Amino acid sequence: MARNRWVAFSLLLVLLLPLASADLVSRVQLTDAGALAESDLGVTVGAVSPDGKDVLIGGMNGYARLLSAEEADNREMDVELVTGKNATVHDIAWHPRGNTALLMGEQGLAMRYDTYDHSVTNVNGSFSVLGQALTTVVWRPSGDFAYVGSVDGSVWKFAEHTGFELLDNLGSSEIMDISCHRNYNVCFVASKDDGIAVIDEGHALSWIAQTAAETWVGIDCADPTLNECVGFASGLVSKAIRINTIDASKSAAEEALRLELPSGEHIGVTSGHDGTSLVHLAPLGLVRHKPLSGEAFTVLVPEHAAEWDAVIAGRSLAVVWETGLHSGYMITEFGNIIAFSPAVEEVEMNIMDVLVLGAVAISVPGVILGLIYMNSPWMQRKYKQWRFGKK
């Protein structure tokens, strides 16, 4: 009897152990959707229009092109744009209304794309940034001003009626990214080495404590329901920035988190499906970050991308967008277009998880009841009375 009790207790302990974490998985399958050209285009950036229908991309030698977000593999839907510039386009930002987009880049490239006639022209006051290496641009949600960063740490506010106006309290490190919350006129500046700064509604820039130790590559305000944005740094590090909606200068950084991956490094970030962030990896890979829960998990493991196509996976990831969860397109720096869709393996894994959890849910109560029965003469007596009748 004692031996049977030990066996029962051992079985109970095994069933109550948490399930071991699964191996790194790619949750998408890849399809080669062709290339934008036969030669290296030097694509650097892309931005999806507010209505989700178009993607404006840019690159070396003033390259600019409009693609269909839903049919990026269909060259008949492309619109080749003429900038008349030889400088590299580093960033693109659509106006919240979606009628125009700003393009910023090397040598003070500061231009506006107009959807009405597909023209690309210099913005007002572009002479004031002539010669500057402009790295990033974003419109704040009200659409009245945009913010522009440069390689020397300068940050300007821009509006067509005022041109470029330099902000105060700047650093000296390259501005890697700027992102604005979608419900507040509060924006965050990620510099390479000076930390993260916040720009309040009145255009005052303040540096956030405990952010200067990391080498930042991007920042994203993906979920408009949360009062936070998340910065992403080298070393697979991320850090949430809590927004003080009363006094933005008092916004604070939370504890840094590090994603455990066998390989890969953060190189950028794009807003993904349903308030999530898609973090770009080098070698070519993707990680999804969920600000609401703080979770992060692989979407595309770099080793799996290399197994799919070693040549394409060996090229830098320039543009990513989703048309649905785990569905969308990627464009490499060369100009390769990669379509991705939910992986069949992920569905099978989910079914297996359900079966295992169901088995545990059924067996654990049974073992517990069995243990209680084995150690309760009263229950055994009652069972015999019920089963065989009272003698």
Rank of each mutant, 00 (worst) to 15 (best):
M374E: 02
V151I: 10
L261D: 03
Y116A: 14
L236G: 05
T211S: 14
L36V: 12
M60Y: 00
G163A: 10
R3K: 14
K250R: 15
L130M: 07
I368E: 00
K53E: 13
A72R: 06
T31F: 01
Y113G: 05
L300D: 04
K382M: 11
G275I: 04
I267S: 15
P50Y: 01
A8P: 00
D177M: 07
K85M: 07
D40H: 10
V230A: 03
L259Y: 02
S327H: 00
V120P: 00
V344M: 08
G366N: 04
A253W: 03
S150Y: 00
R381Y: 08
I199W: 03
R97I: 06
Q132E: 09
Q29M: 02
F145L: 13
V45A: 13
I178V: 12
G105T: 14
D78Y: 07
T100I: 12
I362M: 10
V320S: 09
N227H: 12
A306N: 09
L56C: 11
A252G: 07
A256Q: 15
F340H: 03
N74C: 09
D114H: 11
S234F: 01
G370W: 02
P365M: 10
I337F: 02
V360A: 06
L134K: 09
A282N: 11
T298D: 08
T88L: 13
I368Q: 01
W378H: 12
A47Q: 13
A72E: 04
L292A: 13
L257A: 12
G294M: 03
L16D: 02
L317Q: 10
S234E: 12
P365Q: 10
F164M: 05
L24I: 08
A146K: 05
T298C: 05
V287R: 14
W386M: 15
S119L: 04
S154P: 00
G366H: 00
R258V: 15
S128Q: 05
A282F: 06
K53T: 08
A212M: 14
V319H: 07
M352I: 08
S238C: 11
A204H: 13
V28I: 12
R97V: 09
L284E: 04
A212K: 15
D117W: 01
L16T: 13
G264C: 09
H289N: 06
D51P: 06
T211D: 10
T115P: 00
I312A: 02
T31A: 09
H181I: 12
L371Q: 08
L15G: 04
T121R: 14
E345K: 02
G105C: 11
D78A: 09
N122Y: 01
T83I: 05
L355Y: 06
S363Q: 03
R5S: 05
H95M: 07
F232N: 10
A93P: 01
L371P: 01
L109H: 01
A209I: 12
G42Q: 11
A101G: 08
L66E: 08
L103M: 13
L103S: 09
E201G: 15
L103V: 05
Y116R: 15
G272R: 07
V364E: 03
V55P: 14
Q380T: 14
V320E: 10
W139M: 07
G218L: 09
I243E: 09
Q210V: 12
E265T: 15
K390G: 04
E165L: 06
V79I: 12
L130V: 04
V120D: 00
I372R: 04
H273N: 10
D247N: 12
S277Y: 04
W156M: 02
V186K: 06
